[in-house]
Nucleic acid binder design. Structure first.
Length: 656
RNA sequence: GCUGCUGUAGCUCAGUGGUAGAGCGCGUCCUUGGUAAGGACGAGGUCAAGGGUUCAAAUCCCUUCAGCAGCUCCA
C-alpha cells in the first residue's frame, strides 16, 4: 500500500502501482468521470501515471485552468492526426498551447493548407473524436523514436528532421523521450493528455499563419494552423460569440461607420481625425488638461523637432534610433533649379522627438531650481513620432504619430512615495471616468544591469510598494523587470469584453536628470540631482480612444458623444421649428445635428440609432403646437413629449 | 522587417483572358410622412502603381506601395 497526500491535507491509502485515476475512483465515481489530469507534486501529469508513496496529488477537472491547457494540447494532436490523414506528405514540428487555443507548425514541402481546408480537417477530427481512441504514453529510446517516426519519413526518403532535431536536443539534455499515441497516430510529446480523443468534441480551427522553424527566418518556412478547444459546447459557442462581438466592435470598422477617422496611403500609420473623431479626441484632451490643472501640474509645450545632439545626450540616439524619424535637408542647385541635392551635409542635423522627456528636462534646468519648487510636475499633451515596422501598424492602437498625456515629476527621493500615491488617485479617477473599473497593476523592480546606487533603488522600490499598499491596490510583482534606470508601475485595464490593455505607466528615472545636469539647491545650499518620474495615464490619446471605441462599441456616454442629439423633423414642413430647437439646444451647449433629408421618419430614426446618437428629437405638428419635443434614445426607448427645459434638466452628466 | 492572404465606385463586395457589375451611400424627382429601410430615375471606375507575357490583361507573371492575419519587435 502507498499513502497519497490530498490538497485538503488528508491522506488516502492505495494499493502499490495505483494511478491518479485509481485515486479519483476511490474518492468518488463522479470525480473519476470528471477527471482530466492530475497535478502530482506540482507537476501536471496523466491520470494513468502510476503514483509513488508520499506523492501529493490534486485531481484536475475541467474547472482548472491547467486542465484546459491539457485539453487543448490533446486537441493539437487530434488536429495533427487529421492533417496527416489528409496531407500524408506533411511533417509535424511543434504544437504548443497558446493563450486562447493551440497551434501546430507543419512543414509541407509543396502545396499548402488554407482555411478552405478547415471543413475537411474538422470533419476528419470529428471522426477521430468519435472513434474515441485512448491517449497512451510510451517512454522510448532514440532507436525506438526512429521507429516511431517511420511514418513521418519525408517524400525524399529522409526522416522528419524537425522531430529528429528535437529528439537529439532532449537526449543531449539527458531527459527521457516520451511519445503519445492515439489510434494510429504517434507524436513526440511531454504530455500530459486527456484520457481519450472522445474528450475533444468541442473544437474549432481558427486561422492559418506562416512561421519559421525555430522562429528563424533563415530556416524552413512552416504553416501554422491555429485552433481552439473547450470542455463544453457552451464555452466554445461563447468563445465564437466573443470573437464575433470583438469583430463588431473593431475600432477600425466603427471608425469608418461612424466617420471618426480615416487612413490614407500617403500617410501610413498616421490617422486623419474626421470632425466627429476630432470631437472625441478633443474631449479626451480637454478632460485631461482640466484634471492636470486641478492637481498641481504646470502645462508646457515643447518643440517637435530638436537637434540630433540632444538625443545623444538623452541616450535615445544609441538605444532608439531605429524608431526615430530624422529630418533631411534638400538643396536646389542655384544654377539649375531642376537639380536637387539630396545628400546635403547638415551642420545641425535634426530629429523628430519620439519622447517628451528631454524637452521637459531642458525646461527644468532652464534656471536654477530651489527645493521649495519641488515636486515640480511638468505636463504636456506631447505629440511624438515613432517609426514602426510596417507589419505592426494597427488602426489607432499602433500608429506612427501619437499624443502622450505625458508628465515628468521632478522630486527628491523622499517625495517619491507621496507623489506615487497622488498618481494612484489620479489614475483611478481617470479610468473610472471612462467606465474602466477593472484595473490590474504590475510593479517591476531592479534588473541585473542597472544604474544608480543601491540606496536610491531601495528607497524607490519601497516607496512604490508602500504607496501601492497605502492605496490598497493589489499588484503583481515582476522582479527584475524594471528599466535599467529605475523601477516602474504599469496599469493594465480590462474593457467590457475582458480584454486587457496596458495604458498607464509610472517610471522612476535615476539616469536622465544626471545626463541632462538637472539640479536643485537643497536646504543645505548645495546642488542636488532630483529624481524624475515619467508618467502617462491614457498612454496615448489615440490608442486610448481606440480602446474606448471598442469598450463602448461606438455608443459613447453622453458627455463624450460627438453628436449628443439629432433633431428630426417629421416632414420638411417642420424644418423651421426644427431649426429653432437646434439653435436653442446648441446655445445650451449641446453638440447638435439636424436631419434635413427628405426621408421618412422611420428611416431617419434608424439612421440616428445606427450612428449611435444618444437622443433623437422628433418634431412634428403636435410638437409645434405645444412647443415641445419628442425624445427617443438610441436604445429605442421613447421618452415622449417634453419641453426643451425639461429635456436638458433630465440629461445625465453631459459635460465633464 | 518576415510569411501568407488581399487591393475593382465614397463603403461592402461579385467578376479570374474577349464591351466593368450589385447592394448601400450620393444627386434629382415623386411622395409630406409619427419612432429601425416608401418609390422612380441618374451620376459615379486609369480595376492600387509601374513593368512584362498575349492579337487581346481588372483577370496570367514580376516589382513596388498599402491593408489584413500571424510572427518578430515595442530598453
Amino acid at each position: 500500500m502507498i499513502s497519497i497526500q490530498l490538497p485538503d491535507g488528508s491522506a488516502q491509502e492505495l494499493p502499490d502501482g495505483s494511478s491518479s485515476a485509481d485515486l479519483a475512483a476511490k474518492i468518488s465515481s463522479r470525480l473519476l468521470k470528471e477527471a482530466v489530469a492530475a497535478e502530482v507534486n506540482g507537476k501536471v501529469v496523466d491520470l494513468a501515471l502510476p503514483l509513488t508513496a508520499g506523492d501529493s496529488v490534486r485531481i484536475l477537472t475541467k474547472k482548472d485552468r491547467e486542465a484546459l491547457e491539457v485539453l487543448r494540447h490533446s486537441c493539437a494532436h487530434l488536429m495533427a492526426d487529421a492533417i496527416l490523414r489528409i496531407f500524408p506528405q506533411a511533417q509535424l514540428t511543434i504544437g504548443p498551447v497558446v493563450d486562447d487555443g493551440f497551434y501546430y507548425d507543419i512543414y509541407l514541402p509543396e502545396g499548402k493548407i488554407t482555411p478552405e481546408d478547415f471543413p475537411k480537417i474538422e470533419a476528419e477530427m470529428a471522426k477521430i473524436v468519435k472513434e474515441n481512441h485512448p491517449f497512451r504514453r510510451c517512454a522510448a529510446t532514440v532507436d525506438e523514436a526512429n521507429e516511431h517516426f517511420a511514418r513521418y519519413r519525408a517524400i525524399d526518403g529522409g526522416h522528419n528532421k524537425f522531430k529528429m532535431e528535437l529528439i537529439s536536443e532532449i537526449t543531449k539534455r539527458g531527459e527521457g523521450l516520451t511519445f503519445y499515441k492515439h489510434g494510429e497516430f504517434i507524436d513526440l510529446c511531454r504530455g500530459p493528455h486527456v484520457p481519450s480523443t472522445g474528450w475533444l468534441k468541442n473544437h474549432k480551427l481558427t486561422k492559418i499563419a506562416g512561421s519559421y522553424w525555430r522562429a528563424d527566418a533563415a530556416r524552413e518556412q512552416l504553416i501554422r494552423v491555429y485552433g481552439t478547444a473547450f470542455f463544453s459546447k457552451e464555452d466554445l459557442d461563447d468563445y465564437i460569440k466573443f470573437l464575433e462581438e470583438a469583430k463588431k466592435r473593431d475600432h477600425r470598422v466603427l471608425g469608418e461607420q461612424l466617420e471618426l477617422f480615416m487612413m490614407e496611403d500617403v500617410a501610413p500609420g498616421f490617422p486623419f481625425f474626421l470632425p466627429k473623431g476630432a470631437i472625441l479626441w478633443n474631449t479626451l484632451a480637454d478632460y485631461m488638461k482640466g484634471l492636470v490643472r486641478r492637481t498641481g501640474y504646470v502645462e508646457v509645450k515643447t518643440p517637435l523637432v530638436l537637434s540630433e545632439q540632444l538625443w545623444h545626450t538623452s541616450g535615445h540616439y544609441d538605444n532608439y534610433l531605429e524608431n526615430m524619424f530624422f529630418t533631411k535637408l534638400k538643396l536646389r542647385d542655384p544654377k539649375d533649379a531642376s537639380k536637387i541635392f539630396d545628400n546635403v551635409v547638415e551642420e545641425r542635423p535634426m530629429a523628430v522627438k519620439p519622447m517628451n522627456c528631454p524637452g521637459h528636462a531642458l525646461i527644468f534646468k532652464h534656471r536654477l531650481r530651489s527645493h521649495r519648487e519641488l515636486p515640480l510636475r511638468i505636463a504636456e499633451l506631447g505629440l511624438v513620432h515613432r517609426r514602426e515596422l510596417s507589419g505592426v501598424r494597427h488602426g489607432l492602437f499602433r500608429v506612427q504619430a501619437f499624443t502622450q498625456d505625458d508628465a515628468h515629476l521632478f522630486c527628491t527621493p523622499d517625495q517619491i512615495e507621496e507623489e506615487i500615491m497622488r498618481l494612484m488617485d489620479f489614475f483611478k479617477e481617470v479610468y473610472t471616468a471612462f467606465g474602466l473599473d477593472d484595473v490590474r497593476v504590475e510593479l517591476s523592480t531592479r534588473p541585473a544591469k542597472s544604474i544608480g546606487s543601491d540606496q536610491v533603488w531601495h528607497l524607490a522600490e519601497t516607496s512604490l510598494q508602500r504607496a501601492l499598499e497605502a492605496r490598497n491596490l493589489p499588484y503583481q510583482l515582476n522582479p527584475g523587470d524594471g528599466a535599467f534606470y529605475g523601477p516602474k508601475i504599469d496599469f493594465h485595464i480590462r474593457d467590457c469584453l475582458k480584454r486587457s490593455w496596458q495604458c498607464g505607466t509610472i517610471q522612476l528615472d535615476f539616469s536622465m536628470p544626471e545626463r541632462f545636469g538637472c539640479h536643485y539647491v537643497g536646504t543645505d545650499g548645495a546642488k542636488h540631482t532630483p529624481v524624475m518620474i515619467h508618467r502617462a495615464c491614457f498612454g496615448s490619446v489615440e490608442r486610448f480612444l481606440g480602446i474606448l471605441i471598442e469598450h463602448y462599441a461606438g455608443a459613447f456616454p453622453l458627455w463624450m458623444s460627438p453628436i449628443q442629439a439629432i433633431v428630426i423633423p417629421v416632414s420638411d414642413k417642420f424644418l423651421t421649428y426644427a431649426d429653432d430647437v437646434y439653435s436653442k439646444l446648441s446655445a445650451a451647449g449641446l453638440r447638435m445635428e439636424i436631419n434635413r433629408k427628405d426621408d421618412r421618419l422611420g428611416y431617419k430614426i434608424r439612421e440616428a440609432s445606427l450612428q449611435k446618437v444618444p437622443y433623437a428629437i422628433v418634431v412634428g405638428e403636435k410638437e409645434v403646437e405645444s412647443s415641445t419635443i419628442n425624445v427617443r434614445t438610441r436604445e429605442g426607448v421613447e421618452l415622449g413629449a417634453m419641453t426643451l427645459e425639461a429635456f436638458v434638466a433630465q440629461l445625465p452628466e453631459w459635460r465633464k
